[in-house]
Every structure is written in C-alpha cells, then in structure tokens.
Amino acid sequence: MNYSNRHLRFGWWALAVYVCLGIVLETMHGFKIGWYLDVGNEVRRLMFTLGHFHGTMLALVNIAAGLTIRGVEGFRLRPSVSFALIGAAILLPGGFLLGGFFTYDGDPGSGVWLVPVGALLMLYGVVGFALGFPPKTGETMSRRKKR
C-alpha cells in the first residue's frame, strides 16, 4: 500500500470538496439565505462553518501527511494511523455538517455525535503520526552539532 499517494489523493480530493462547500456557503451569504443566516438558524451556521473549517484543515493535514511519508526517510506509518487520519477527516467535518442540517433550536442535529468520534480518531492519528518518525540517527546528530 502506498500510503503517501493515498493521503495525497484523499487530501486533494477532500480539499476540492471543501472548496466547493466554501463556494456554497459564500453563495448563501451572497443571496442572504435565511435557512443559513437567520438568527434562529445560528446553530446551523455555526455547524456549517465549523464543518467547512475542519474539513479544509484536515484535507491539508492529509496532504501534509502524504508529503511527510514521502519526504522523511525511514518514516514508519502504521495502517491504523493512516486509517485514523482519513477517518477523522471524514467524521469530524461530516459530523458538524450533518448536525447543521437538522437542528433543535440551540442544539445541532444528532449527526454531531460523529464529531467526538472523529476527534478521537484525529488525536490517535496525529499522535501516531508523530511517533512514526525514525529515531535520531548518528548522522543527523552530527549534522546538528556542526551547526
């Protein structure tokens, strides 16, 4: 499995999706769509904004992950970590967006329960990714000392 390609491909496609979503949100602003902008739909607006932000950021995180895997020599990525990063990029923004579609006054819809699951996956993915770097070798240590 080429994890680098997988994260890059996922990241760029996700970015494309969230760029489209951004355009949709801008359009709703432009045409002053009450379903999105009315005070009574404040929670929907918040959920969509959070969904858009988290989706975009996690798309970029996946691109960064792909580049890291490709660029760092000896980087060890466990399959579960890769799965977690992609899963988080789906569940976290997806939870916000689903929660925004059907709201209960001050509460988002039930879709928002995906958010904590996504958040845990993201935490696991980020920590797992940080642990995937190779230990400091003698070569790298001596390079630093020279500086």
Binding site: D38, V39, G40, N41, E42, V43, D105, G106, D107
Partner: peptide, 10 residues
Amino acid sequence: RACHPGNYAS
C-alpha cells in the same frame, strides 16, 4: 439566548 437564539431574537 445561547440555546434559544431564534426565540431570543423574536
């Protein structure tokens, strides 16, 4: 207000 923004607005 925090939980009932629409009702608060009206």
